[in-house]
């Protein structure tokens, strides 16, 4: 791991996103104190947790953590699991009872305290894990892919609940996942990691609209990424490029690229639209041919042939799709194409 520099605001929900092996879990475990970085400093609320000459053990950091495997102790009841952090802190029995009941209600498990932890379903176990992480009033909440072992429906519901709970409690949270849909929905900001480094930090919309690299663009959403040659910068913030298959387009850039150099251009399928080729080709439109149309209920996903190259387009609505082989006009919303680092 290198160059991992990150400041989390109080009350913020940060998601660390990346493919497996990118170092996101290691980053989280370093914040938790389960691993010690070779170099660098970790501070929580201004207190140094880890530095060259100082290391605060995990049990002294006052962090709540929800693990991927839930890590519910099978030899204890739900109540005993959730009460454990209070017990460790020698909270009086009556107070303990009240606080466990409160937090169980908060996560939607009121009345299950007496049950053995192993009798619960996966979703319920994850709620117990969350209750346990919350009960002692942590300064920071860590999540290590907590929903990855659940089925899709449950995952979506718990995602909503988790977000609502975090808003209500205002707890600073760091959440690790490899699922971009989860990241986009949960995160106030997303940290994208690759190969042990942070490659981009930003709000979900920023990452979507302004990916700084091909990797981020591909990871955050499905996108058309085409190789192109720079013709020159003719308007501020935009470069004119010609793609390998031979069409020209204006694409946003961070800094003007050298004319003649090769770049990657990202065009999201949902920034495009498609019309049947019934009139002459309008200005700014491209002549294409439908190769495949997949109706997906609320949208139709097309693959069209643009100068012989496959290109994805998503058209919202429930209209009948254009048949394969039909000629069509492709419109790309102005200003949406973007140049990224290869």
């Amino acid at each position: 791991m290198q160059d991992v520099s990150l400041t989390v605001q109080e009350g913020e929900f940060i998601v660390i996103l990346g493919p497996s092996g990118c170092g996101k879990t290691t980053t989280l475990r370093m914040i938790a104190g389960l691993e010690r970085p070779d170099a660098g400093t970790i501070r929580i609320g201004g207190d140094v947790m880890s530095a060259a000459d100082r290391f605060v053990r995990p049990e002294q950091r006052g962090i709540g953590m929800v693990f991927q495997s839930y890590a519910i102790w099978p030899h204890m009841s739900v109540f005993e699991n959730v009460a454990y952090p209070l017990r460790v802190r020698r909270v009086a029995a009556a107070d303990r009872r009240r606080r466990v009941d409160d937090v169980l209600e908060l996560v939607g498990l009121a009345g299950t305290g007496a049950q053995p932890a192993t009798a619960l379903s996966g979703g319920q176990m994850q709620r117990v894990a969350l209750a346990r992480a919350l009960v002692a009033g942590p300064t920071l909440l860590l999540f290590d892919e907590p929903l990855s072992n659940l089925d899709l429906k449950l995952r979506e519901r718990l995602r909503l609940e988790l977000k609502a709970l975090q808003r209500r409690t205002g707890l600073t949270s760091v959440y690790v996942t490899h699922d971009q849909a989860e990241a986009v929905e949960l995160g106030d900001r997303i940290v994208v990691m690759q190969g042990g480094r942070i490659v981009q930090i930003g709000r979900p919309q920023e990452l979507y609209r302004e990916p700084r690299s091909r990797f981020v663009a591909e990871f955050i959403a499905t996108a058309n990424i085409v190789s192109a040659a720079v013709l020159g910068a003719f308007s501020p913030g935009f470069s004119r490029v010609r793609t390998a298959s031979g069409f020209e387009i204006d694409a946003r850039h961070d800094a003007p690229a050298t004319p003649g150099s090769t770049v990657d251009v990202v065009i999201h399928p949902e920034d495009c639209s498609l019309r049947p080729a019934t009139s002459p080709l309008p200005d700014g439109a491209y002549a294409v041919q439908v190769t495949e149309a997949r109706f997906q209920g609320t949208a139709t996903r097309y693959t069209v042939s643009l100068h012989g190259e496959p290109f994805d387009v998503i058209v919202l609505g429930t209209d009948d799709p254009l048949p394969p082989g039909a000629p069509a006009h492709l419109f790309i919303a102005p200003g949406r194409a973007r140049i990224v680092q290869a």
Binding site: P58, M65, A71, W73, L142
Partner: peptide, 22 residues
Amino acid sequence: HPELEESSRLCGAGFAMTLRRI
């Protein structure tokens, strides 16, 4: 599972207590 032990540490229990209780 190692996480059973790690979660105890994050709950504030030291090594000895984690050993004894978990």
